[in-house]
Amino acid sequence: MSNIGVYLQPLAVSASSAYITSDTTEESANQTNQTYTVTSPSTIISISPNAPQPRLFRKSFSSLPIITMAELVLEYHELGEALSEMTTLDDDDERWIDPPVANIARRVASELMNGGYPAPHIFNHGPKSVVFNWSRGADNLYLTVSTDSISALISSPQRIKRRIDYPLTALATPDRLFPSIQSAYWERPIIVIKSASSDAMERPLA
């Protein structure tokens, strides 16, 4: 079992590497204020209001690769770039997404990064949503983000394991929303599956 402890500060998903500044990017084991700031007047969509102060975030997943903060920032930067690519296409392009969808996706990405989650891969199946995708072995976790809901889907090659729908308001409490989805994905006991929002709904699977 590996433990990682990092100090996080609110971050945003930016589309351009030109705006990444890293005044204090030393990665010393004793460093207590590792700060990465991503600033872009034109591309910042969301900075988490719930995490105004650096905070200690601990994870202990034997199955998760340990990545440095710098790698995490780079991965989320690439994610922001990919989202931007999708919005700048012509609206008749299959890979184009509605700008409001992209804005919400950026907000979700910011919250995920604030929570120290590995950056997902993304795809879309039309203009009305963006899908965040993580793989663990042959299993997949998808977060479908649209302008009115966030839905989690956990699948294996053989079957759909779980589907959980959350209203968009659940994003107001990311510290409850994402751990509940994570618990479902890692098949740990579900503790807060409904506490992210009283409107959260898990589809019963036969």
């Binding site: 690439e78 990919a82 299959e94 890979r95 993304i122 795809f123 199946h125 039309g126």
Partner: peptide, 22 residues
Amino acid sequence: SVFPVSFRSRRFAAPNFFNLNE
């Protein structure tokens, strides 16, 4: 699988090549 030439990010997931219409 058809993509815009700019789509080279390693963050795009494999199922990106399906498009669904309603």
